[in-house]
Computed example of a mutant assay.
Amino acid sequence: MTYKTPDGAWGIEGVSLLSWRIYGAAKKLCDMESLCEDVYRAKDAELTLDALQELVDKGLGGRFIDLRRALKGVEL
């Protein structure tokens, strides 16, 4: 839903981010999409778990679930 330019600018096509009411939500959406891309691009289980932890933390607004502890004993 969001776009990014090579110079770091980002936005949502057709949406003005000048309103602070939607800026925060749009920024979180942009961050979440970037984190999903990081998970997709992760090269191994450890990097995938790190990226997933960051995605979960961002989505929940803090570290409420420790994925390494939750998956202890699970072979990745």
Rank of each mutant, 00 (worst) to 15 (best):
M1W: 02
T2A: 12
T2W: 01
T2L: 07
Y3P: 01
Y3V: 02
K4C: 08
T5M: 08
P6C: 08
P6I: 09
P6N: 09
P6M: 09
P6R: 11
D7G: 10
A9Y: 00
W10Q: 03
W10V: 07
G11K: 02
G11S: 05
I12Q: 04
E13R: 05
E13G: 01
S16M: 10
S16H: 11
L17N: 05
L18T: 12
S19L: 14
S19N: 14
W20V: 15
W20K: 15
R21A: 14
I22N: 13
Y23A: 15
Y23T: 14
Y23F: 15
G24H: 10
G24Q: 15
A25N: 06
A25P: 02
A26T: 06
A26K: 02
A26P: 07
K27S: 15
K27F: 15
K27V: 15
K28S: 15
K28F: 15
L29C: 11
C30N: 14
C30I: 01
D31L: 12
D31I: 09
D31R: 04
D31V: 12
D31K: 05
M32V: 14
E33Q: 12
E33Y: 06
E33I: 06
S34R: 03
S34E: 13
L35N: 06
E37M: 08
E37K: 08
E37W: 04
D38T: 13
V39T: 04
V39R: 01
Y40H: 10
R41K: 14
R41H: 12
A42E: 12
A42D: 05
K43F: 06
K43E: 14
A45L: 01
A45M: 02
E46F: 08
L47K: 09
T48G: 05
T48P: 00
T48S: 05
L49F: 03
D50C: 03
D50M: 06
D50A: 10
A51C: 07
A51Q: 02
A51V: 03
L52C: 12
V56R: 01
G59E: 11
L60T: 13
G62F: 13
G62D: 11
G62C: 09
R63W: 05
R63F: 07
F64C: 09
I65V: 13
I65T: 03
I65Q: 03
D66N: 12
D66K: 02
D66T: 03
D66W: 03
D66L: 02
L67I: 11
L67E: 07
R68Y: 10
R68T: 05
R69W: 06
R69E: 12
A70K: 04
A70N: 06
L71Q: 00
L71D: 04
L71W: 06
L71M: 11
G73F: 05
E75D: 09
E75V: 10
E75T: 08
